[in-house]
Amino acid sequence: MSRDGGKVKLAVFKFSSCSGCQDRLIDLGENLLSLTEKVEVAYFLEASSRTDPGPYDVALIEGSISTPHDVELVKEIRKNSRIVITIGTCAVYGGIQALRNWMNYQEVVKQVYPRPEWINSLEKSTPVSDHIKVDYQVSGCPVNELQLFNILKQVLTGRRPYHRLESLCQECKRRGNACVMVSRGIPCLGPIMVEGCGALCPSYGRGCYGCFGPMIDPKPDALAMRLEEIGLPKEEVIIRLRGFTSWSDPIRRFLERYERE
């Protein structure tokens, strides 16, 4: 898929985020080495100080857009890249930092920074796809490196990438877990969240807290109703749903209604 039949030029960019997702790339280990046979890492500040100005074949973008400068930069990246893939829940949904979207921005800045007047950021932390056309999205906090690797392999071999967008429950049951909600009464967001993490939390006996974001056609109303039924106070339900992907469309629309009820 490279322009001249040579190596594919890959760039990795970061906006408001913790770098955890791009670190997953480095954690690929041997797989990363096999990747470099096909790929030239042209821009990846976390891994190398050598930078290539582009254009790039594939750009991976981590982090949410939260300053006016971010907006300009992400548009530049789009212009300079053939395929843009957002990686991680910040880039895909706005991330944990989108919690500020639910609050008074001025108040938040005052609480966090001693000199709020020095801060030049946007009122809301938003997904990359609010600003540019994104070709593919891989969510997760952090992304699952094998899922990311799989997506990259599909892109590099010229396929249209596909990964399942069904409930985490399915992956959880395929792994052989017993439902933690049913067998232990542990509140779990798995029934509305997307698979892809390997059902990490339920495999260790805790409930899913939704860091990969909503599945396709999620039913937050039904889940909230059920969580309340099994004894979780409404405030707790809200806290859980807000957590990682409060700014994803389905969760946000639900919360806007649910919090008022």
């Binding site: 409930s167 429950c169 399915q170 049951k173 509305i192 109303d221 039904a222």
Partner: peptide
């Protein structure tokens, strides 16, 4: 309105055989 569409029922059903 109650259903979550999570497919747990499909997964634990001893006869459901659908696949991807």
């Amino acid at each position: 309105e109650k259903c979550l569409g999570c497919a747990n029922c499909n997964m634990v059903c001893p006869t459901c055989f659908c696949f991807d």
